[in-house]
Design a protein around this nucleic acid. Structure first.
Lengths: 101, 101
DNA sequence: ACCAAAGTTCGAAGATCGTCGTATAATCGA
DNA sequence: TCGATTATACGACGATCTTCGAACTTTGGT
């Protein structure tokens, strides 16, 4: 059961924006950006159930925002920074920037 | 019945991203960016019903992406470029950039 | 005063979304 | 082999979203 990721050329702006428009997912992306080392889904301190977490990570993965590889029982996720930058230059940085007061 | 717009400081990133994550609304925003002169909602050549159009323009307005003022029977809309740039620097440009092949 | 034009409002239908609990699968260590 | 850990799969529920048509409002022109 291989994990599906969209190819870089298939990334859709609307899908990426939708993936980022949920507070939980935005939080995940921000945490991933702060510490670029791939992390297990369970290590984000999110106060949601396991199945909801799985759901959000799938949305992020299928829209092309994150990349996930199996490592033992854990799934290590990391941002697809370079792919996103190539397809939608400046988008991720704009989203990650802390909003000015 | 005054038209409600959120104040610049109240713009929420998740709301803006959600507003931009719909293909119809993304199209509207791109057309508004191409020709910065305020335009009537009906002049976008969208192939959707009037009520759907009203809905999309309301989502864009209430998320703070566009500004609308009454002018006769028409409602003239324009992008809130400066406000968006101040709150979320680089975001609008990244979204408007034509995706590279 | 009437009519046409531009939008809004009001349900309503159908799809998608976010969330959950339970059950299940895969891997690692004792 | 057993149990703990990590995560997915499968419904299910209510909420929200996109879309529509029909009725209404407001404005401007004739």
């Amino acid at each position: 059961m291989t994990i599906h990721h969209p190819a870089k050329k298939d990334l859709e702006l609307a899908d990426v924006l939708h993936a980022l428009s949920d507070p939980q997912r935005l939080r995940i992306v921000r945490l991933l950006a702060e510490d670029p080392a791939p992390r297990a889904c369970g290590s984000f301190g999110l106060e949601i159930s396991k199945s909801t977490r799985t759901h959000h990570f799938r949305v992020l993965r299928e829209s092309g925002v994150i990349e996930t590889r199996q490592e033992g029982t854990a799934r290590m996720s990391s941002l697809r920074r370079d792919d996103l930058e190539e397809r939608f230059p400046g988008l991720l940085d704009a989203v990650l920037e802390p909003a000015p007061a």
